[in-house]
Design a protein around this nucleic acid. Structure first.
Lengths: 140, 140
DNA sequence: ATAAACCTTAGAGCATACTCTAGGGCAAGC
DNA sequence: GCTTGCCCTAGAGTATGCTCTAAGGTTTAT
């Protein structure tokens, strides 16, 4: 006895809107959703797990197009495992790059905050420069 | 003697297209750019530094609208330091959240990769299930 | 004097990812 | 039988962030 979930339930569980769920299906990010006698969608536990994973990778900036490709491979079965593995490895690489970019800018922001602090303390007022011939204080 | 840079040079230095540089100026992310007698833009070192910082924060998903606000505050001078500081602190928070999301999905991807490996090794073939009455192997 | 290499503007067009609207069906309760 | 609460589709509309086009100006070299 497999349990199925309605559109409304899945929207609640996943945090996505019903619009978005239908949109993802139209874009083929979500495939093979069962229907009841009224043509209403019936989502399985597997479907929900996939939507949750999809949401996660999307939040790490994987384009919908790529997610669609992954969903397609997944639906084709085990013969596509190597290809899916490759996609995930590439995405891991992109995530690592994102983390590195984020850490980098975090440092730059801290530097700016330190400079602001020094300016507030009256040190470093000498850093002020003339900006394009207008008396606009610098931020740097 | 302050040095100035042409549109083309700034595009090369920053890696942004000339189109994008003009677009950012129209959107008021870049302010108060000097002009020569031909109405050509003259970018200062400060301008370039700002564009480089702007590019960085943009890459950490700060919306252009927020960057515009920051640029505006910056142009208003030291009286807006506290407000700018607040913006940066909030953005630091968002960056921390992004890093945490990314690290999290990195772990999930690794789990998936491990499962793939097990399937490739012939262990876990029993994980295969029937997907919506079709014989579509699971990914999970 | 004319071509090439710069630059300018306004505004149109495009890609991505939703988000909403219109028009309609079905099933349960009053 | 009719309202309420679900659900359905197709397609239009919106927001963001570019990206390009058209039409034209200036400077420098040939």
């Amino acid at each position: 006895m497999e349990k199925y979930y309605s559109m409304k339930e899945v929207a609640q569980i996943t945090g996505l809107s019903e619009h978005t769920l239908r949109f993802y299906e139209k874009q083929q990010l979500i495939l093979n959703i069962k229907r009841d006698s009224n043509n209403y969608r019936l989502y399985s536990d597997f479907d929900i797990q996939w939507i949750q994973f999809l949401t996660k990778v999307k939040s790490t900036n994987m384009p919908l197009k790529d997610i669609q490709k992954y969903a397609e491979l997944m639906a084709k079965g085990n013969s596509t495992l190597a290809e899916r593995e490759e996609m995930l490895l590439k995405h891991k690489q992109r995530i690592a790059e994102q983390i590195s970019t984020l850490s980098d800018i975090l440092i730059q922001i801290d530097n700016k905050l330190l400079r602001y602090q020094r300016i507030r303390e009256g040190i470093g007022q000498k850093d002020l420069e003339i900006y394009n011939s207008l008396t606009i204080p610098q931020d740097s």
